[in-house]
Design a protein around this nucleic acid. Sequence first.
RNA 1: GGCGAGGUAGCUCAGUUGGUUAGAGCAUCGGAUUCAUAACCCGAAGGUCAGGAGUUCAAAUCUCCUUCUCGCUACCA
Length: 556
Amino acid sequence: MPKQFNKTLVTAALPYANGPLHIGHLAGCYLPSDVYVRFLKSNNKDVLFICGSDEHGVPITIKAKKENITPQQVVDKYHKLMKSTFIQFGIQFDNYSRTSSKIHHNTAQDFFKTLLKKNVFTIQDSDQYYDETAQQFLADRYITGTCPKCANDKAYGDQCEKCGTSLNALDLINPISTLSGNKPSLKKTTNWYLPLDKLQPKIAEYINQHSDWKGNVYGQCKSWLENNEGLQPRAMTRDLDWGVKVPIENTPGKVMYVWFDAPIGYISATKEILPDTWQSYWQNSQTKLIHFIGKDNIVFHCIIFPAMLMEHENYILPEFVPANEFLNLEGEKISTSKNWAIWLHEYLIDFPNMQDVLRYTLCTIAPENKDSDFTWKDFQSKNNNELVAILGNFVNRTVVLIHKYYEGKVPKTNDFQAIDTQTIQSVKETILQIENNILNYKFKDANAEMMNIARIGNKYLAETEPWKLIKTDPERVKSIMNIAIQITCTLAIISEPFLPFTSAKLFSMLKITPLKWAFASGVNNISENHQINDASLLFTKIEDETMDQQIEKLKR
RNA sequence: GGCGAGGUAGCUCAGUUGGUUAGAGCAUCGGAUUCAUAACCCGAAGGUCAGGAGUUCAAAUCUCCUUCUCGCUACCA
């Protein structure tokens, strides 16, 4: 029995505010979520799209120390940059918030207090390494030493990358803090744990109800649940001076674990824009909650956050988690530290007003089922051979012909011939496929089908040959050109989720106010005698030289 | 090491519960065309489905083994 929903709450993973955004972020998470939300909004659905910067955690404090500024200055810088990047790429969040905001701190603390009141947490003491010079406790990741198994002297406190063994920092021989290079000391500390072990049956039941999730997501959840010892308690607090303070008396220097506070950021961002009605989304069983993320955070969104929500008891649980795999770049993993990335804010400078080209390219190679690869050559080919040659060209030849034959006034249709009805029918069928694909989170397929509508248009013109008929049967040409312009209007409507800037240009060229999805298969959207604007190019060719420069830039 | 996901045409990727001759886009080659940004349209060629064994009337699909890539491995986010 499928559940019925009347609201959709879409979240996109909170990007971590210690660096700029690159194409992998866009392809993996923000583009698919934006397409999905734009589609629902075009269909007049009640949908809310939430995101924000994740501004806590150790890496930010380390970056601040390195650059000799405060953590707040670090997050201010990247929050501003990321927000502006999203806006420029047309990622249309209803709210792009941040976890350093007052409302977030309050919301996260309230959430924590509720779990405290319900006695959800278990409290445990443990010995943790402490760096006297840096004056802070060290996460396992920030300690290196000699692996007890393979004697590799560059093993991390959580894992030895040489032999692959999972480690505990206490196992390391000759531990060294990566912050100061000194030997850390052991200190006792108390933390509040989410007892995932006790919650395992509830979580397992929840996951089992969602065997329809994508293979990578469901598989990873099962792997956590069915791991030899099952789920283990996880500390929800950390010893750090940067983060949301734990709302318990006499706990100085203790903040919430980033993965406790970050997903609550989705809630606080909703509260921020809907102070009175946010509960109608988060605490309403009629709401479909969807988390768009990358494969690296499956466990947090499918196990830990749902566990938190279950124990709070007032919230709905995620209904679907479309996690994408990773995007590679020119055959290699994207790496921030090696500067092997295409930074979005730089793309905007190098390719002004070409956001849709990147949106399109990334959508065609979205890593929906497996890691995929971005190459500049492919980017150029998608632009030149598809956007310019198929979509741009169809629109251009249609608009040019209408100006040539009718001075830009849309001609009236006469009787439809078989080819007309067939063409209209195949456009309708393609639209249905797009809808079906989007609703099933298959954005790559949906995007390809959108391009197929332009192909149908090109084929229609090639087969009807209005440039020949104009000499023998001008009445017939009127019908053909009318249908061609209606298809152009369809393209304006259905391209909006994928190519919002192009869609806007198309509506402007057609000189009509933007239409919603319900009009997509209409054949009377542009009325007879309506005056359209002059043709202008939607896309321009990209030369080899431009691509060579970008490839050169990567290698620097 | 353990677990999960993947390996399909030159390239980038689809292949739903096993079922006609394994698909698409791009690239390549050929044809047609001139309204259009030398674009469009039609057609052809291109695959031992990572490798091996097994189950079955039938395997890209199910099972086992080998191998490669990516992720997770519980205090990185």
